[in-house]
Write a protein that binds this DNA or RNA. Structure first.
Ligand code: FES
Ligand code: FES
Lengths: 162, 162
DNA sequence: AAAATAAAGATATTTAATATCCTTAATAGA
DNA sequence: TCTATTAAGGATATTAAATATCTTTATTTT
């Protein structure tokens, strides 16, 4: 079980969009070039973010994407779920129902204890992702990345932002 | 991202093995029949448990599997990792290295901040799984499952245990 | 009017999950 | 000793998901 690489792409794209001045847009082309990603396929990830309502889009020349919310209002979970979907990572196929000893009309009252534990773990994962905001990420990146690289990256982006 | 169905199978099989009297073994055939699973494929999941050292095996007629540890010594994480592997659910492809603004000789000192958060969430998931023992599961199942079904299931198992 | 863009659908391609089959070695029981 | 049964592991097939590309359409800026 491995998350789609689109998760990494979407998170990095949102980190870039978080630094975009108000009212400006950045195109798929620029985001793909900046991260070295296939433009057409990255587009699918950005469409997911758009459908989830986390980015606004603009058509035509100088169009592209900008965040629909402030970085403090967006969490890792929002972004991960936008591209991975909201369904749980553990699916119970109810194999307990195949128990040959079961009375024929028997029906479970509650989800299987195995599934409940797996779902609690899934929820712990989501809770952690929910606790980190996009603004937290940007703060960390600002510390991690050398100031000159940070600066030149934003200049690169602004040159291409419509 | 969805866990393999083998995870559900392995957890349920371990729950059954946990109730097996000392020194007795239960075959793949019996476990597959009890859970309504394909015998040959279930065998792969049980082999994973065997390779991880969580079950002992016995060959020949009346052979099969038994737990290699007490139910209190086995956690959900042990079983999940045995079949899913221990590698993290988020893989960083280091797309930050494609930043066109980067100096040519530039090399990161630490993992990307994005990956660190994703790995913390992965660890939160594992920590939750680590906190639940197989013995806890058996206790819960004993409460959930009607006493007569619980009893007849174990009789079914004992009839087939070598 | 022309160029650039997001959106969405169609379609490959590649990889992982699921499943079956077969052979081998070990072992219990007749 | 012989036979049936079992786990282990390798080979292979099938199915589903992830990855990737291409095309068309509607929109918008210049
Ligand atoms: S029946 Fe699905 S987890 Fe127990
Ligand atoms: S480069 Fe991989 S998560 Fe940032």
């Amino acid at each position: 079980m491995i998350l789609k690489s689109q998760v990494e792409w979407a998170l990095h794209c949102c980190a870039i969009l978080a630094g975009l001045p108000d009212g400006r847009y950045l195109s798929t082309k620029a985001l793909a070039e900046f991260h070295g990603l296939p433009k057409e396929y990255l587009s699918k990830a950005l469409q997911s973010l758009s459908q989830a309502g986390f980015v606004h889009t603009s058509l035509g020349p100088s169009g592209g994407y900008r965040l629909a919310k402030t970085p403090a209002e967006l969490t890792f979970l929002d972004i991960v779920e936008a591209v991975e979907g909201k369904s749980r990572t553990f699916v119970c196929n109810n194999i307990r129902a195949n128990n040959p000893c079961r009375p024929s009309g028997y029906c479970e009252s509650s989800p299987c204890a195995v599934a409940r534990v797996m779902w609690e773990a899934d929820e712990a994962w989501r809770q952690k992702l929910r606790s980190v905001r996009l603004s937290d990420l940007v703060e960390t990146l600002a510390k991690d990345i050398p100031a000159d690289l940070w600066k030149s990256s934003f200049e690169w982006v602004l040159e291409r932002a419509g």
